[in-house]
């Protein structure tokens, strides 16, 4: 059968073409509907406008290791959320520094909230974990949640995995927990215990102590830092992070003895403390 008669298309063929176009159009519609459904399923905020979401761009941005299972036990599919309650009158600077380090190692979904027990919080405390994450709707793309709540509490509290673990109180204990997610403690029992000793000194005597106790801690730091660049061993440890944070927080950096000044400079040069500089007195 010839395809063309007198330059006109065979009506049967025309009908067939029209039918194919119709089928293709319906297929596209179905695909769009399925895509839309898929987005609402993966998006906790169902009212979010699905058209503004970019597709497939998140996975390539992040690099990180997934060894949290071995540290924290089996992943149950939900985001592991570290919830920290802290008093805005005494921001836990060491925890903010550790948050920055966690962000370098893991994909962390950070957020800051204000509890109703606190009336007003300065803007620098609301932005202390960096800008709100653009992909915060897709919680399954993250390995860790870090939720900071400014609240009227006497001491820092951390709630994590509440079915297995009691709430943890105190900046020192929370700092130790966060650091264990970053690095194993020193193999040497004496070194590991020295680190713990410095953390206790920083939290109990420096941050909460009298002027006399602070001066004593600064002298102890100065003599320890005369023997090496860091407080314990050959590299930076949690002892350095917590002690430097508390020296900076108490505003005694400018009047500190020479070895302490040099060590603070080293800490600053590593860039770990840049995130807390807007919060310093």
């Amino acid at each position: 059968m010839p395809m063309y008669q007198n330059g006109e298309v065979d009506p049967a063929l025309q009908a067939l073409e029209a039918r194919q176009d119709e089928i293709l159009r319906r297929l596209y519609e179905l695909k769009a509907a399925v895509d839309g459904l898929a987005k609402t399923v993966t998006t906790p905020d169902a009212d979010l406008d699905a058209t503004t979401l970019s597709q497939g761009s998140t996975a390539s941005v992040f690099t990180g290791t997934t060894d949290l299972d071995s540290l924290l036990g089996k992943d149950l599919g939900a985001l592991r959320d570290i919830v920290i309650n802290a008093n805005p009158t005494r921001p836990p600077l060491s925890l903010l520094v550790l948050h920055g380090l966690l962000c370098q190692k893991y994909r962390v979904l950070s957020s800051v909230h204000v509890h109703s027990s606190v009336s007003s919080v300065p803007p620098q405390l609301l932005s202390c974990l960096g800008p709100r994450h653009a992909d915060s709707y897709a919680r399954h793309h993250f390995q860790l949640g870090f939720t900071l709540i400014w609240k009227d509490v006497p001491h820092v509290q951390m709630k994590f995995s509440t079915q297995k673990m009691c709430p943890i109180e105190g900046e020192a204990s929370v700092a130790r927990f966060l650091f264990r997610l970053l690095a194993a403690e020193p193999r040497d029992a004496a070194a590991a215990t020295q680190v713990d000793g410095w953390i206790d000194t920083a939290v109990f005597q420096m941050a909460e102590g009298s002027a006399k106790e602070r001066a004593a801690v600064l002298r102890a730091l100065n003599s320890a830092l005369g023997r090496g660049s860091w407080l314990v061993g050959q590299e930076l440890s949690l002892a350095d992070i917590v002690c430097a944070s508390s020296v900076l927080q108490t505003g005694s950096a400018s009047s500190a003895p020479p070895n302490v000044q040099r060590w603070l400079k080293c800490c600053e040069n590593l860039g770990y403390f840049s995130c807390i500089s807007p919060l310093l007195p």
Binding site: L71, L72, S161, M165, E169, G170, S173, R180
Partner: peptide, 14 residues
């Protein structure tokens, strides 16, 4: 494990 270790830290501080 590290969760228990953190709880021990908590009670020592407590």
């Amino acid at each position: 494990n590290m969760l228990e270790q953190t709880e021990v830290d908590h009670w020592l501080e407590f």
